[in-house]
Amino acid sequence: MIRKVKPEIRTVGFDDGTFSFSSKLRGEKTILIGVVMKGSREVVGVLSRWITVDGRDATDRIIEAVKYSRFRDLRVILLKGITYAGFNVVDLERLHSETGLPVVVVVRKRPNIGAMERALRKHFRDAGERIALLKKAPPLIELLPERLYIQAVGIETGKASEVVRTTTRTGLIPEPLRLAHMIASAVMTGESTKE
């Protein structure tokens, strides 16, 4: 339980690398990067794992990265959305329960869950299981009208929004997520892309 969000709160933010449509067809992998930071200014470390494009291993790899890292003083996991590497859906409740850490999902656009469900039903035999994970996630909370939304598991919404504010330095996205995006894109394409 986080009683007070300190300026130097230790968080880890995860984002995935790019992938091609053909990599979806072949079940290839993309990089998953976690950036560990103190607040919004000091990078403490970087974690990496490989996840399957459109697979079912994102939750396992994030749990593994957090539990087996040397970073024992993490307070919050930040995610850039609930799906990685296409439709590799993260089980937020399981991630929280198995790491013992609150999870805050940050997104800039409200996802169209109906469109996601239709795509899943059209392309995946296990669509029901993936849709169940989407529906099990907590509701989106709008932090900035039509610009920034969060979902929080294991932490009160007010504290989750404080974590987002405390870890954001420039723009709208927390610094651990912004840097994870840049590193992941550089690993996959040879050059970072702007968040």
Rank of each mutant, 00 (worst) to 15 (best):
R10N: 03
F14T: 03
D16M: 05
S22G: 00
S22K: 06
S23W: 10
K24R: 13
K24W: 00
L25K: 14
G27I: 00
K29D: 03
L32C: 13
I33E: 04
G39N: 09
E42C: 00
E42G: 02
G45C: 13
G45S: 08
S48E: 14
I51K: 08
R56T: 00
D57W: 11
D57M: 12
D57L: 09
A58Q: 03
A58S: 08
R61T: 01
E64S: 13
V66P: 07
Y68C: 01
R70Q: 01
F71A: 09
V76C: 11
I77R: 11
I77L: 13
L78G: 05
L78C: 13
L79W: 00
Y84W: 06
V89I: 15
V89E: 12
D91W: 02
T99L: 14
P102I: 07
V104P: 04
V104D: 09
P111Y: 01
A115Y: 10
R118C: 03
L120K: 05
R121V: 04
H123T: 01
R125C: 01
D126G: 05
R130L: 07
L133H: 05
L133C: 05
A137F: 05
L140W: 01
P145F: 05
P145C: 01
E146G: 04
L148Y: 14
Y149L: 14
T157K: 13
A160H: 13
S161Q: 09
E162T: 01
V163E: 10
T166K: 02
T167S: 10
T168S: 11
T170Y: 11
I173F: 06
P176S: 04
L179Y: 10
I183H: 15
I183Q: 15
A184M: 08
A184F: 08
S185T: 10
A186E: 13
V187P: 11
M188K: 12
T189H: 11
G190N: 11
S192C: 05
